[in-house]
């Protein structure tokens, strides 16, 4: 390779791992947050459904007692 061109491009390849690492870390931070929140939303929705069902059953049986 032309020595001048080699010098012009000398930092390109060594920079690649740092560049890839930076992009991966940015999206990893965002993705981890999305996954954690999504997990919590699904858990909360399941819990809410169960609780509302139980509550309506309880209310009905209380009314029957009265």
């Amino acid at each position: 390779m032309n020595p001048v061109l080699a010098e012009i491009y000398s930092t390109v390849l060594p920079a690649a791992p740092f560049l890839i690492g930076a992009y991966v870390l940015i999206w990893l931070a965002v993705l981890i947050f999305i996954l954690v929140i999504n997990n919590k939303v699904r858990h909360a929705e399941q819990q809410l459904m169960l609780l509302e069902e139980t509550l309506s059953r309880q209310v009905r049986s209380s009314e029957d007692l009265e």
Partner: peptide
């Protein structure tokens, strides 16, 4: 006549 910097691409998202 300058070195070309690939690392500067981090700027676009950083």
């Amino acid at each position: 006549s300058n070195k070309l910097l690939l690392s500067q691409k981090i700027f676009f998202f950083h």
